[in-house]
Structures are given as structure tokens and as C-alpha cells.
Write a protein that binds this DNA or RNA. Structure first.
Lengths: 349, 349
DNA sequence: CGACACCGTGGTAACGTTCCCACAGATCGG
DNA sequence: CCGATCTGTGGGAACGTTACCACGGTGTCG
């Protein structure tokens, strides 16, 4: 693709080839009006002949728009965040914009490094799921940005896109209640994460609405990982008696770990323990039993985040705070104790 | 972070602030030698005072190095490819290089679009898992690049990084044979994919070594997805008699789909059907039974691909063809028929 | 018929950096 | 003691593009 004298063709090469000035070439390529049919024709021919591809660096330099967007997420390897990234990628591609993806590992130092990188790259804007204790820096970030995830709450004056946690929790608590589990145990994430507080608050609010004392709900906490969920569930099983237990996990990995712990304790899910997850990662479909879970619209969050970011860059409209609804995915990890013949008795327990 | 008169500080702002020329600032920041202690000091102070961050666009424009690398994979949402991307990301970050990630969905058109985008962005190099029928374009790609995945074979003259399929297949066939499954069925991917041919050839080679006629191995083919694996396994079960069946799936998603199909057919894995996967995605640990599989070193492939790409860019050394070894992960999806009391009889079949 | 708008085009100055050359002063070897 | 080399610095061109201004030609209106 380097046609002219071994180097890549520039706009000047195209102009020479077409016998016009580079201004005219720029106008044709920029989709500007007021160009003679003939000039447009010759320019277009010259472009293909020379194999010209605009130099985005030069464009960015001159126009102030680099054609680059960045997204900073905890980990591309996490299925939920991969979905978000993919949504952003697809949406950006539609605008001929490329996406830089960074993984922060919930590490403030890494995040700072990535933020520096993307500023140097002169990205036109950034989508960020910020690490908990890194607030101050964002306000003087000096770049259009959109927040994703639970952290949005802490920044009332910025655009954000996330899932509607309150609605999701309501959905989850209701499906548990409908199966006879009015007081599920909670498998929470670590204290330091913003998502934990958001989840817990929604549970409390919902309990108050339903005249349940939130304080009586058993709780365990762990990392948002399979190992964490496994440990938390093991602790919970030791702590609790032999009655049927229902747990609402703060994410699917924890839920999957919990199911493994149940099995290893010689118990059965859903016969002895009902488990409800949160995220909707594909792996939940392969577990046994299939994980009943609340699915967050990961991809949609990515798409809408880019939408908001483009608005932000263009200076259009207000800072929007968008909360997308979640969806219940019923599989087999919740026992229906409300039925005439409760599962637990049918199982001969 | 925009300190000087509302705009972002440039090297000239720093120079003025420090009372030196921009050349001196550039030398200090470029780590050049021959700078007085005093000048360096004042420049460094001026940098923090102005909040200066080099404009990577301008750097790229002038120096010809954009500080950007790109990776084109089928889908970031696929756990294996996410691992590869993550490895590349981490390795690139160590060199202060940012990574553009593109998902091609195995679609030649999308791939072409992405290739165009990354060329416009003037990335310094690219890591590509090319779509099957898109060969010609790569030879005149005009940019340093490294191939990843099975396609490497078709390009003897380019650097590539992949897993050692022959070794992986040997590992898999041997572990199956050791459990008494000498002639496993093969669950292959679609004909159009290069990976399929590579896998199949390794199986053939291994069979020849072990005096097995490859033609007697039952085969089914499908997309590299859970649904595909489910359908393929269903067809296979219809086709085969009631003896214990062992299958070697070409990837983990197919294997997971196969396990689901076995369960739905009222059979048991591993009691009636043994399943071996290939990839090592995390979801394999959550399925029931846990999926025994051959783990590809996804992250390592990403890391080494960037290594090779940096060599390629620097013009160092030969074009390397790297094949990384795979690892067996034993979980519970293979029955041991070689034991004194075969599982199948113990299960009362 | 003259003033004026508009169309299509070309020329040129930036954008922020690096690279190369020039130059003044210090150091050094013969 | 003088030419040569080295050290530390400054000046300016160039990278490829876009934005702006200027210009000749044509049509329109009073």
C-alpha cells in the first residue's frame, strides 16, 4: 500500500496525480460541497491509483480530532466487561473511530498510567469505570468523558451509563420471594468497591418497601471471583442451620463459586440451596444447574456510553445519567418452595 | 490538565517557563545526554508546573512512530481471544504503547475495514488473526505485522505466534487413550477455518504414529459455538450405537455444548460419553462435570506476539515462527474405561 | 451597466514535535 | 599557542493535514 516512491502516498501525491491542488483533494475527501464533477472524478481516481490513505496523525494534529476513543475497564478478560468493550467498539466503528482498551485491574496506579497514556494519545474522549479512591483527578481531567458502572452516583455532574441496579435488585428479590425465599442471604463484593454499596442500598430500599427488616438478612463478603464466592458460601454454610438456604450473589462469578461450594459440601443446588446470580455471563448457562441470574445489558452499556461520549464531545445536550434495565434469566438454580409439594420434601431431605 | 491560557501546554510553553529553547526541552525529555544539570532541573520543574504531556500525534507525525499497536482478533467477547488481547495489552503497556483492539467476527469485510482503520491511524505494527480467504492483501500490507493462531502456516515468510497444535493433539489423544478411548469421535469446526485443517492434520499424523486408521474416527462439524457443539453432539448420538462414546472437541465451547446435548439425551457425561475440550476457557471449570481440556497459553500468545512485533518493527532478527506448548487440565469429563471396574458397568448401564 | 454574491479553486499558515545543522565556549593534544 | 574535538545550546525545516483567505469567473439584481 505504499505506492509513491516507496513511501505512503500523501494528499500532495494525490493532488499531483489528479492535476489539482491539495485544497481541492481535501475538499473532495472532506465531503465538502462546491466541487466540479470533473475535479471530484479525477481526485477519486487519483486516490485509488495512489492507494492514498489519510494520515490520521496529521488530521488529528491539525483538526484537533484524533479519531481515537478510549475505554478503561477493570479487565477485558472478565466476560461482562468484555461485552461492554465490544459494544463500545462496534458503536465507535460505525463512526470510523478506533477504540483504545485499557484494563485497570481495579488498581489506582494502573488506572493513572492508562489515563496518562490516553491523554498523550490525544483521544477525543474516554469511557471510564473508575477505581474507588481516585475521584479528585477526574474533575480536572480536561477531556470529555463518560462514566460507566456504579461509580456514576458519586459524580452527579458527569454523563454516565450503567445498569439500573435498583430495578435489578427488585427483579431478583421478587423472583426469590415468588419461590418462597423472602429473606435470602447476600453474597457481597469487597467493601472498597462502589458497586457493593449500590447493591446493598437497593436491597435495603426494597426490603423497606416489603416490610422486611434488612438486618436479618445473612451476609458474606468476598472478592468478585469464583474463589471468593466459594469461600463465602463455605463460611455461610458453616454458619447456618440445615433449613433451605437462598442466596443472592452480587455477581455471577461469586454465584458460580457458591454453587461449587454447595456441591462440595455434599448438598444440592437447588434442592438444598437456591442461588441467584447477577451479571448474565455466558458461563452461567454451562454450569449445573444452570444459573438463574439477572442479566445486565453489557453490550448496550458500551453502545450507549459511546453515544453519550459523542454527545459530550460535540457539546450537545445535557450531561445524561442513563440507567439501563436488567433482565431476569431463569435457569435452574432456584428451588420453588411455594409449590404444593416443596422440592425439599420431594428430594427426600 | 490544561494550564496555559486554557489550552494544553506544549513543549514551547515548557521551554518559555524554563527559560530555555524547545530543543533543550526535547533533549531532556528524550533522555538525551549532554545536558547541564541546571538545565535539566529547570526543564523538569517547568514540566510539572505546566502540566505538560507530550502530544503523541505530533511525535508520531514527526518521528514516524505513533506509539500505537493494533490487534485484530475474531471477538474480544470470546474468552480465549480476550486472554490473548490482555496479554498483548500488558506487554505493550510496559513499552508505553497503547493497543487498539478490533473484532472481526470472522468476517472478511469487517476485517478489511479494521485493517484500513489501523493503517489510517498509522499504528506502528499489527497483530492479526486473519480471516480465511483474505490472504493476498497481507503480503502487500506495508506495515510490520505478526500473525497469531493457526493461519500462520500459510505464510511461511512472516513472523507468527501460536500454540503447538501437534503437541496439544498428542496430549489429548494420549490422555484419551490412557483412559481406554483409542478412537475418539472428532467435533470439528467449520470447513472454512484454517484452524480446522490444522487440528485435523495433527490428529491424522498422530493416528499414523499409533497405527490407527484415521478414517475410522467418527466426525461431526459445526460452528465454534455452544449451539454448534450441541447440534453436532446430537447428530453424533443419533448416528452411533449405545457403546461408550468419547469425543475430542476442537474447542471448549463445542465441548460445553456437547455436554449439554449428552445431558438432554438422558445420558451422563462421563459415564456414557467422555468429552475432551480444547482452549482452556474458565467456563470449563463451572460446568458439570468439570471439562477436561487442553489449555492454550492465550495470554502468553499475546505477550509473545507483541515481543515479535517489536522485533519486527525494530528490524531485529529473523522472522520467527513460535509455537507455544499447551497444557492438559484434568477435570471430570473423561471416564476411565481402563480401570478394573469400568465406570460404565459400575453405573449399571 | 456597475455592484455584489457566489462558485470553484489555489496558496499558505498553522498544529507540536523531532531531527539536523550551526555556533560559542571549553578542553585538549602536538 | 593554535587547530581540532567536545559540550551544551539554539534555530529552523519538515512531517501531512485542515482552515482560512484570496482570487478570477459567472450570474443576478437594482
Amino acid at each position: 500500500m505504499n505506492n509513491v516512491a516507496g513511501r505512503r502516498a500523501t494528499i500532495i501525491d494525490v493532488a499531483k496525480h489528479a492535476g489539482v491542488s491539495k485544497s481541492t483533494v481535501a475538499r473532495v475527501l472532506g465531503g465538502s460541497t462546491n466541487i466540479s464533477e470533473e475535479a471530484r472524478d479525477r481526485v477519486l481516481k487519483a486516490v485509488t491509483a495512489t492507494g492514498y490513505e489519510p494520515n490520521q496523525l496529521a488530521v488529528g494534529m491539525r483538526s484537533g480530532r484524533s479519531g481515537l476513543l478510549a475505554i478503561v475497564i477493570p479487565d477485558v478478560t472478565n466476560p461482562f466487561w468484555a461485552e461492554v468493550a465490544r459494544g463500545a467498539q462496534d458503536r465507535a466503528a460505525r463512526e470510523d473511530i478506533s477504540l483504545l482498551i485499557f484494563s485497570s485491574d481495579w488498581d489506582a496506579d494502573k488506572e493513572a498510567t492508562h489515563l496518562r497514556s490516553l491523554r498523550r494519545a490525544r483521544v477525543d474522549g474516554a469511557i471510564i469505570n473508575p477505581v474507588a479512591d481516585n475521584f479528585g483527578d477526574l474533575s480536572r481531567f480536561g477531556l470529555p468523558f463518560v462514566l460507566i458502572g456504579s461509580s456514576a452516583e458519586r459524580f452527579p455532574d458527569t454523563s454516565s451509563v450503567g445498569s439500573d441496579i435498583a430495578q435489578a435488585v427488585r427483579l431478583g428479590m421478587d423472583v426469590l420471594a415468588a419461590s418462597g425465599h423472602r429473606q435470602p442471604a447476600l453474597l457481597l463484593g469487597p467493601r472498597s468497591r462502589l458497586a457493593r454499596a449500590r447493591f446493598l442500598r437497593s436491597v435495603h430500599e426494597h426490603c423497606v418497601e416489603r416490610d422486611i427488616d434488612p438486618a436479618i438478612l445473612p451476609m458474606e463478603e468476598s472478592e468478585y471471583t469464583v474463589e471468593g464466592g466459594h469461600q463465602a458460601m463455605t463460611r455461610l454454610l458453616e454458619r447456618k442451620g440445615r433449613e433451605h438456604l437462598a442466596v443472592f450473589a452480587a455477581n455471577d462469578l461469586i454465584a458460580l463459586g457458591a454453587i461449587m461450594a454447595v456441591r462440595e459440601a455434599g448438598l444440592s443446588c437447588p434442592n438444598d440451596v437456591s442461588v441467584l446470580g447477577f451479571d448474565g455471563i455466558p458461563a452461567g448457562a454451562f454450569s449445573w444447574p444452570g444459573l438463574t441470574t439477572i442479566e445486565k445489558p453489557g453490550r448496550q452499556i458500551g453502545v450507549r456510553a459511546v453515544d453519550s461520549l459523542l454527545d459530550e464531545i460535540a457539546g450537545r445536550g445535557e450531561h445524561g445519567r442513563i440507567f439501563l434495565p436488567c433482565r431476569l434469566v431463569q435457569r435452574g438454580s432456584i428451588a420453588d418452595l411455594s409449590a404444593q409439594a416443596p422440592v425439599r420434601m420431594a428430594a427426600g431431605g
